[in-house]
Amino acid sequence: MPQVDQNIKEKMLFIKKFVAEPRMIGSITPSSPQLVASMLCNVDWDKIACIAEFGAGTGVVTKAIMKNKLPQSRLFVFEIEDDLRQKLIRDTGLDIYDDARRLPHVLREERLRKVDLIVSGLPYAVLPQEVTAAVLDGISRTLAEDGMFVAFQYSLHMKSAFERIFKEVKIRFVMMNIPPAFVYECRGLKG
């Protein structure tokens, strides 16, 4: 019963934040287990030494990453909404960063050059264009040559933007999510 109560509390917090700031949160509910599974299904965890997650929300994907990653793998989590960030800190014990645009700076501070996996739940379609451009620039500067970028979106709005950055863009549709979502799996940074 305590887990059910926790799930209800997380959903209520998410709805409250969405109503207050729909451009910041981007969804009315946390990601479903089916969406999380689709996002992480092709990750080769044995080859992942450094991970970044953008738009962690209530930590549904964060917890799946923590469960699957190697113990020595580094994880950098970004969540801009303060209440959600504080909840993530309490729930995970991780340092949670505020703005995904800061990834290159955070890596420099940690004396790291590249990440092997970037997982994104950012609502690119509703973010200001300059924010999306800055996040995409950070991805292209920090993702390892053989790295993988995975994002979910509620439309195909970002398809052409991702195709400009990556040689390979695969898209999966996940019906079992509210709302249904597209998972973009991207590899091979262009030029």
Rank of each mutant, 00 (worst) to 15 (best):
Val131Pro: 00
Lys87Pro: 02
Lys159Thr: 13
Arg111Thr: 10
Ala49Asn: 14
Ile51Asp: 02
Arg141Met: 11
Phe54Pro: 06
Asp99Cys: 06
Leu75Val: 12
Val60Leu: 03
Pro179Asp: 04
Ala125Met: 00
Asn7Asp: 05
Ile48Pro: 04
Pro104Leu: 12
Val119Tyr: 05
Phe162Lys: 02
Ala181Glu: 09
Gln72Val: 12
Ala49Asp: 14
Lys63Phe: 08
Ile15Met: 13
Glu21Thr: 15
Glu130Ser: 15
Phe54Ser: 03
Asp116Phe: 10
Gln34Glu: 10
Gln86Lys: 15
Pro180Gln: 12
Leu75His: 04
Ala37Ile: 01
Lys69Trp: 13
Glu21Val: 09
Arg101Val: 10
Tyr124Glu: 01
Ile118Trp: 07
Val183Tyr: 00
Arg172Met: 05
Cys41Glu: 12
Pro33Glu: 09
Val61Phe: 10
Lys159Met: 10
Thr62Trp: 07
Glu168Arg: 10
Lys16Met: 06
Ala56Cys: 15
Leu107Lys: 09
Gly55Thr: 08
Gln153Ile: 05
Lys170Gln: 12
Lys167Leu: 05
Ala151Arg: 08
Lys9Glu: 13
Trp45Pro: 10
Val174Arg: 03
Glu10Lys: 15
Asp82Gly: 07
Ala144Val: 06
Arg113Asn: 13
Phe78Val: 04
Val131Gln: 11
Glu79Ser: 14
Lys67Met: 12
Asp146Cys: 04
Asp44Ile: 10
Lys9Val: 02
Asp44Met: 10
Ala56Gly: 11
Thr132Ala: 14
Tyr97Ser: 06
Asp44Phe: 10
Phe78Ile: 04
Asn177His: 04
His105Asn: 05
Leu103Trp: 09
Ala100Tyr: 01
Leu136Tyr: 11
Phe78Trp: 05
Leu189Val: 00
Glu81Trp: 03
Ile51Ala: 00
Leu189Asn: 02
Leu156Arg: 14
Ala49Pro: 01
Lys17Met: 14
Val61Trp: 05
Phe78Arg: 06
Pro179Gln: 06
Met148Cys: 04
Arg85Asp: 02
Val60Trp: 01
Glu130Val: 11
Asp46Gln: 15
Ile80Gln: 08
Phe149Pro: 01
Glu79Leu: 15
Lys16Phe: 03
Ile80Pro: 04
Lys69Glu: 07
Lys170Trp: 00
Val36Tyr: 02
Leu40Pro: 00
Cys41Ala: 13
Leu122Gln: 08
Ile28Phe: 03
Glu185Gln: 01
Val19Gln: 03
Phe173Val: 07
Leu35Ser: 07
